[in-house]
Design a protein around this nucleic acid. Structure first.
Lengths: 158, 158
DNA sequence: GCGTTTTTTGCATAGTCATGCAATAATATA
DNA sequence: TATATTATTGCATGACTATGCAAAAAACGC
């Protein structure tokens, strides 16, 4: 399916070059460029492109392609989430268990999800301030810890 | 009215420290901090604070206080708006008149507003692809042009 | 090519956010 | 202090965005 890829490019370009403040408006601009889709599809496209909605500093908001800076900003955010919640860590052959401060398990799990570790196949946050991290086959807890330390220099085991 | 100012500070802090992805959630967090308002007020507060909604790079969006970088990003955006619409410029003692390409007067006026020139007391965009810029008392058209060139290096008169 | 699986999309609608208006609270003015 | 003015808020609702589900399109495997 080629259409979609092209449309995504077009969306990127349009958003960069125009002040688009609603999907409705984007719909029209896309129409002008020969793409015809529904608002639902646009919503998904924007999510896929990670397009944000920023204040124009005055009267309203407009869509914006995320810059590299913003990406990093974003990642720093997760690291902080993780560090803020982290209490201790332990693991066996296939699962890493992180204990967190009260109420932080969700944010820690989400942070790990968002940091996009290759070693991880999934996370789940339990009721009791605990996060389970399921590792890929062939990956050890040590591997993961190593990767974690790489991404989060401030991180100290225990 | 002191409440509001304090609430705005609290909102800033909460947004920085938490992953807030809806006004509903923010409402709750504010409640925890002792502030009780409605979603409508929050919507206005966020607009006032110029809070944006950015992709978390994975599963969704969260609110974010604009950083300096984003501000600049934003400014570049206005410059582009201005240049895209600009045709010619002229002035008398108190008013600068910018002619724009068809349909661009609104965006040019908005861009000038948003760039925040000290020399300007107001702008208005007319029907006929024209923007009026009212200058502060004591400021000449030349002063404004100079300032404009400073902000927009690419800008060439006529 | 044909059936199977995966991806993409529209439709309908739920979810979320913005705003006109009127009420209330704060502030300025006489 | 009484009155006028301005700022802030809630309510109700309209505007805008996201999403479950089923259908259609594309990609895959034989």
């Amino acid at each position: 399916m080629k259409e979609r890829t092209e449309r995504l490019k077009a969306i990127k370009a349009i958003i960069k070059e125009n002040r688009v403040d609603s999907q409705e408006k984007l719909l029209q601009l896309l129409e002008d460029h020969g793409y015809s889709v529904t608002q639902a599809t646009l919503s998904r496209d924007l999510k896929y492109l990670k397009v944000g909605k920023l204040s124009d500093g005055r009267s309203g908001y407009y869509y914006s392609i995320p810059s590299e800076e913003e990406r990093r900003e974003s990642e720093r955010h997760y690291i902080q989430d993780f560090l803020r919640g982290y209490v201790s860590i332990d693991w066996n052959q296939s699962v890493v268990v992180v204990r967190t401060f009260s109420g932080h398990s969700d944010s820690v799990a989400l942070a790990i999800d968002n940091m996009g570790f290759d070693e991880v196949i999934g996370t789940i946050s339990g009721r009791d301030n605990v996060v389970f991290i399921a590792l890929k086959k062939g990956v050890s807890g040590d591997d993961f810890i190593h990767s974690l330390k790489t991404k989060i220099p401030e991180f100290e085991e225990e």
